[in-house]
Design a protein around this nucleic acid. Structure first.
Length: 420
RNA sequence: CGGAGUGUAGCGCAGUCUGGUAGCGCACCUGGUUUGGGACCAGGGGGUCGAAGGUUCGAGUCCUUUCACUCCGACCA
């Protein structure tokens, strides 16, 4: 993509309302924009591209784990929520409205009921189990206090998966599989995270684990063991506990951003909703369920909370909207443009996501392009400038801002290797 | 929902105390000079001052009501 053709409204000034680094930077770098309502954001081109990249990683790993992607309507009949009693439990967070026929509906904040409804209409036999169905779809929660940009919006993109089993043992097997799958997803995204024991909250059920992105700005306080992989949300462990219940090691307190949560549900939804299958003894039994969520739009905020510096965003390889930014130092110099276009074509041919900063208006000098590169947080910049007379370009790594001079002949290979 | 704060141009702000017909920076438009780290000069466009009502000869400013947004708490991907 060419920078000159893209809507990327970067700003020097920090929006007055933003507190968190991720909120400030995503606004300043032109990824998102306030949609003039609390907790509502427009995703601008860069934000949309980034969201799609993160979403693709989530989808890829779930598909590999054998999950089925589906798509449910965002609008669900209130009657579904009344079947499980959650219409009352969710209270005002559940946005309700009526259609022209005076029927009551909601904007889905999560989809246990709707997914159970889908499955109870189609799955009748133990032979069809186990089954894991998911969607990556917008959710709406009328939060008491939306805040921190994408961290706690009212409308947000969430991956919600639901598994259906004939036995508790099989559900626990899937629960473990999902834990492993989530670890792959977070690792691929380049995140430093911790899996912790958690409370099941409004979703209900027996056991649950949360995936915490480690960041000082996190809203959750967690206790982690320094000698094994044990971790727990303070909701479920005494805050003054110093010994690890698993290995006896030392516990320390830290902050995390809840980006994923997996639950062992059992039959808390299938029973009231009469979602049953016929077992091998020809008897009806309620499905044993698990449910698994990832806050996809929140991940964008989490990635930036963990990866930024005073100059801007520092996206990880798997999440960056572009991996390479080709900066034409003097966009009126035809030779530089020619060289830049050539590198641009070659990188694209190799399947690398590259942005060509070809802006040639007189207000956009070299400095502006560098500042935008640093603010947006693309992994690498190639500066095509005066050095091309010696057959060289400058390669800048966003992470540490280190610079090196690379020959024109090898620049494509060097980048392919760095991005591998 | 309790506590605190803020609403003035696309963004960031001043002006409000002490009423006199709206200003600065950034961004934007035109022309010129610049061009490897957010340039400079000159000119220009853009506002029912969150909304409603009231006081007054006159309201961004004073009074009343109301709405929205942000931050701190209790809840959540």
């Amino acid at each position: 993509m060419r920078f000159s053709r893209m809507l990327i409204p970067t700003t020097k000034e920090t929006p007055n309302d933003a507190v968190l680094a991720s909120h400030k930077l995503l606004l300043r770098a032109g990824f998102i924009q306030s949609a003039s309502g609390a907790g509502l954001y427009n995703f601008l081109p860069l934000g949309k591209i980034t969201l799609d990249k993160v979403r693709a990683v989530v989808k890829d790993e779930l598909d590999k784990a054998g999950c089925n992607e589906v798509h449910l309507p965002i609008v669900t009949p209130l009657s579904l929520w009344e079947e499980t009693g959650r219409a009352d439990k969710f209270g005002k967070e559940l946005l309700r409205f009526k259609d022209r026929h005076e029927n009551s509906f909601t904007l889905s904040p999560t989809n246990e009921e709707a997914m159970v409804n889908l499955v109870r209409q189609t799955v009748k036999s133990y032979k069809q189990l186990p089954l894991n169905v998911y969607q990556i779809n917008w959710k709406f929660r009328d939060e008491v206090r939306p805040r921190f940009g994408l961290m706690r919006g009212r409308e947000f993109l969430m991956k919600d998966a639901y598994s259906f089993h004939a036995t508790v043992e099989d559900m626990k097997r899937e629960f473990d599989l999902m834990e492993q799958t989530y670890k792959k997803i977070f690792t691929r995204l380049g995140l430093e995270f911790k899996v912790v024991e958690a409370d099941s909250g409004a979703i209900g059920g027996a056991g649950s684990k949360e995936f915490m992105i480690l960041a000082d700005s996190g809203e959750d306080t967690i206790m982690v063991c320094d000698s094994c992989d044990f971790g727990a949300n303070v909701e479920v462990i005494a805050e003054d506990e110093t010994k690890c219940p698993k290995c006896g090691g030392n516990l320390s307190q830290t902050k995390g951003i809840e980006a994923g949560h997996i639950f062992q549900l059992g039959t808390v939804y299938s029973e009231p909703m009469k979602a049953e299958f016929l077992n091998e003894n020809q008897k009806l039994e309620p499905f044993v369920m698990g449910t698994y969520g990832i806050g996809v739009s929140r991940l964008l905020a989490g990635i930036i909370e963990q990866n930024h510096d005073e100059k801007g965003c520092v996206w990880t390889k798997a999440s960056a909207p572009y991996n390479v930014d080709i900066i034409v130092a003097k966009a009126k110099n035809e030779e530089q443009i020619e060289v830049a276009e050539k590198i641009y074509d070659e990188l694209q041919a190799k399947g690398i996501d590259v942005l060509l900063d070809d802006r040639a208006d007189k207000k956009t000098g070299f400095g502006v392009k560098m500042k935008d590169f640093e603010l947006i947080g693309i992994n690498y910049a190639i500066v095509v400038g005066n050095d091309i007379s010696e057959g060289k370009v400058e390669l800048i790594a966003r992470k540490d801002l280190s610079k090196e001079s690379v020959s024109l002949e090898s620049i494509v290979d060097v980048l392919i290797e760095k991005l591998a």
